[in-house]
Structures are given as C-alpha cells and as structure tokens.
C-alpha cells in the first residue's frame, strides 16, 4: 500500500517535472527541471530494480547532461541578449511538435505491436558462464551486445568533435574552455580539494565492481570525469590543450582497443566475439580503457571548445 503510494507519487512528480521542463517559460527553469526530472527517473529505475540504469541515469542523465545544459545556457545568454519568445507558436515550434508527435507515435506503434515478450533474461543467464562477467548487465553490454557499447563510445567522440568545431581558428589547439581562477583557500578551492579523493575511490570502485554487481565503465567514467571537472573549476588545475597528444590518445584508446579486439575476434571465429576462456580479463581490460576514454571525453565535452590561445 505504502509502496504503491510512493510509486504513484513518484510517477506524478516525474510527469510534473517533465511538464515544467518542456513548458517552462524561462530556459534556466527548463534546465533545472530537466535535472530534477533526471534524478526522479533514476529513483524510478531504482524502484524497478534496474540499479545499473539508475546509476547511469543519475550520473549521466541528471548530472553530466545538466552541467552541459547549464554551460550551454551560459554561452547562449552571453552571446545573445535574450529576445523574449513570441507568444504564439511559430513555425519551428510547430515543426518540432509535429516531429516529436511522429516519433512518439512510431515508438508507441512499435511498442504495441511487439510480440508477447519472451524476455532475454533466461538466455542471458544460460550463457553467463561464457560471458566473462558475473553481472548480467555488464555481460550484455560488453559481450552479448558489445556493438551498442562500441558505437556509443564512438558517438561520444563524434559529439566532442562537434563541440570542437565551434572553436575559432586562432584559438584552435589551446586549452579547452575558459580559464578558472579562484581565491586560494576559498570555499571553491577547498571544496575542489576535499572531493576528488572520495570521487576517485567511488569511480574506480564502480568500474571494478561492474563485472560482478551494478556499475561499469560508463557510471565509473562519469564519476571520474566529475572529479576532473571539479578540480579544474576549483582552479587547482588547468584544462588540457586540445592539441595535446596524450589527451587525444586518452580520447581514442577505449574505442580503438575495443574495435581491435572485435576485429581480432574474427580470427577466433566471428566479429566482436570474445573466446569464453579469455572473456574475463578481456572484458576487464576493455572496461578499463573504455573508462579512461569515457571519463576524458565527458570532461572535455563539459570544458567546451578552446577559447583563447595562450600568449607565451
């Protein structure tokens, strides 16, 4: 009774937050409610027992996307003296609404015409011994459906390239984003010193635990990215130069090694297949390099394009 009351309240809150995010007048309000929405969704996943998804949603959906949106908002308001949106729906709004409606209908149609779900849980459980990971979610993400994860990591890189194209020519190669200077010994500088040790521990633990229990490269990578972002925003470190070779190596090493292993799998039988004997350490290795690449890519997404080439 109490549990269903909780779920019902949660659903209503999710709908309310989504509504406020979409229909909110001010852009800042929309972003804040989007973050609230992400956190509520994470709780909903938790209630459904999908702890991996809840972790990912809280870290990426609410946390990182929220920061990205706030940064984007700051850039927009800095460049444009925000014109008040017109009261009536204009063409863009109508076109967006129409496109959303079509996509929503297509998804609804696809969902409703699905055959009676058999569920893949049993098949995953049957083959778990060959997967090299005890956590079924990790087994699916890195082995049975490695495709998705491989492509996702490449999509992140593409997103970063998209952001880098916003750089002006003379700033290219310089440090990513604005330079942050804080008062030494001030609140933010202290905060930036206390948080990273705990964040490093949590991030690495999430990756390491991912093969047996909820956690993994994306969740751990996001926490590690957050640690880096906090350190740089606190002015304790500077963002790397986008031309830095070590940085670029860190960005691509995850997808490259994943892809190399996938191709090597052809020798053993098929593309993207790990031999069961070696699957355990292979998955751990892929997770480790993927975590590095994901963490660096996500942090660089937040830092943004290089803005000023430093004068020597």
């Amino acid at each position: 009774m109490i549990a269903s009351l909780f779920d019902l309240t949660l659903c209503l809150l999710i709908l309310a937050a989504a509504g406020a995010a979409v229909f909110g007048r001010a852009a800042f309000m929309a972003v804040v409610f989007f973050i609230v929405y992400g956190i509520l969704i994470a709780i909903a996943w938790l209630r459904l027992g999908a702890i991996d998804v809840a972790l990912a949603e809280a870290a990426i959906g609410a946390g990182l996307t929220g920061v990205l949106l706030l940064a984007a908002l700051a850039r927009i308001t800095r460049r444009i003296d925000a014109p008040e949106p017109s009261t009536g729906p204009d063409r863009t709004t109508l076109a967006t609404a129409l496109a959303s409606l079509v996509i929503a209908s297509a998804i609804a149609f696809a969902f409703l015409t699905l055959p009676e779900p058999q569920g893949l849980q049993e098949r995953v459980a049957e083959n778990l011994a060959d997967a090299g990971a005890e956590n079924p979610v990790t087994a699916v993400l890195l082995n049975f459906r490695g495709w998705d994860t491989l492509l996702e990591s490449i999509v992140l890189l593409a997103a970063l390239l998209g952001i880098w194209t916003l750089a002006r020519d003379e700033a290219w190669g310089g440090r990513a984003g604005p330079r942050h200077v804080t008062r030494p010994g001030g609140v933010l500088a202290q905060f930036g010193r206390v948080l990273p040790p705990i964040g490093l521990l949590v991030g690495i633990y999430l990756v390491w635990a991912g093969s047996k229990q909820p956690g993994g490269a994306f969740q751990g990578g996001t926490v590690l990215a957050a640690v880096w972002i906090v350190t740089i925003m606190a002015g304790l470190m500077q963002a790397p130069r986008v031309a830095d070779r070590a940085l670029r190596a860190a960005l691509v090493i995850g997808p490259v090694i994943f892809l190399a292993l996938a191709v090597a799998g052809v020798v053993a039988g098929a593309f993207l297949v790990f031999p069961p004997v070696h699957a355990g350490w292979l998955i751990l290795a892929v997770e480790a390099v993927l975590t590095l690449s994901i963490a660096v890519t996500l942090a660089m997404l937040v830092f943004g394009p290089p803005e000023e080439e430093e004068k020597p």
Partner: peptide
Amino acid sequence: PDETGDGETRRT
C-alpha cells in the same frame, strides 16, 4: 556571473 556560476571565479 560566469558559466561556472560561482562567485569566486574570474574569467581571464
């Protein structure tokens, strides 16, 4: 206010 939104940061 800058994009970090904190009162201590100065963009240089």
